[in-house]
């Protein structure tokens, strides 16, 4: 298996990756690739489909590399529809990932935002850390990584908005009710979920949140991925931010 090596300043060539397995759940797909990647959970790669676009993706596994895609535009629709043998082109990793801390962590993922968190759980488990993985999805048919988290020996809890599986509601409910039982919080999800996490955690507990924006250049110059009002760039300063740095710079949620 080809190993991609990191480092973005020596020129970044694309690595050709072949899809080996596709695991589709509703409008979401896990694409297993034939390369591996050294990455910090939360960092992202740029995935390019020539003739379409290049999109940022935080891997949900590193060895072999796996990306988790939700169909929202033409490029992601094509990715979700991929079959084994299809090719895509990858550069990276980029950005700042999660800080791994020992203690008892709570990981809160919403939608495909769960992707970098399951990789984080895997890395934390390798350090001997045991935590709780909470995943929120619109419905039970797009449950993504509960099984994998359980296999790590972690507690794993599913919330669905329609109540079709797991608890009915949003994953932040778990955070609200159990915040006191943890030493650190990691979150990645849609904007309202991230805001709720920041509001609940504030500066009371070490908390890191991965933010999503439209990343175009991926190297901190085009400004497309600015977190409005804060002067922070998702691709260069993030995508993972400490709660306190977001709140200090005026991100709403505090």
């Amino acid at each position: 298996m080809e190993r991609m090596s990191g480092g973005c300043c020596k020129g970044s060539h694309y690595h050709e990756a072949v899809v080996t397995r596709v695991d589709r759940r509703g409008d979401v797909a896990n694409l297993y690739l034939d390369i591996s990647l050294e990455t910090v959970p939360g960092q992202f790669v740029m995935v390019w489909l020539p003739g379409l676009e290049e999109v940022p993706m935080a891997p949900s596994d590193d060895d072999p590399l796996r990306i988790t895609v939700k169909a929202v535009g033409k490029t992601t629709r094509r990715l979700v529809g991929m079959e084994p043998g299809d090719r895509l082109y990858i550069r990276g990793p980029y950005g700042r990932g999660f800080t791994r801390r020992s203690g008892r962590p709570l990981l809160v993922g919403g939608g495909v935002g769960a992707a970098p968190l399951i990789l984080l759980a895997k890395k934390l488990a390798e350090m001997g850390v045991e935590g709780v993985y909470v995943e929120g999805q619109p419905s039970g048919d797009v449950e993504l990584f509960i099984r994998e988290a359980l296999d790590l020996g972690w507690e794993a809890i599913l919330y669905t908005e329609d109540g079709s599986r797991g608890y009915k509601g949003l994953p932040t409910q778990y955070l609200e009710e159990n915040l006191g039982g943890f030493t650190s919080i990691y979150a990645c999800g849609p904007e309202p979920m991230n805001r709720a996490v920041l509001r609940l955690c504030g500066d009371r507990i070490p908390c890191e949140v991965s933010m999503e924006r439209i990343v175009k250049c991926g190297v901190g110059v085009c400004g497309s991925c600015v977190v409005e009002g804060t002067g922070l760039l998702v691709c260069l300063d993030g995508p993972v931010f400490r709660a306190d740095e977001l709140l200090e710079r005026g991100y709403p949620g505090g």
Binding site: E54, V55, K216, G218, V219, C222
Partner: peptide, 22 residues
Amino acid sequence: KGYDPPIVVDLGYGYLNAVGLA
């Protein structure tokens, strides 16, 4: 709006960009 990505290439000895005056 500018162009769709890729809009930047990191060549190692320089960069090539076509942002499209976004």
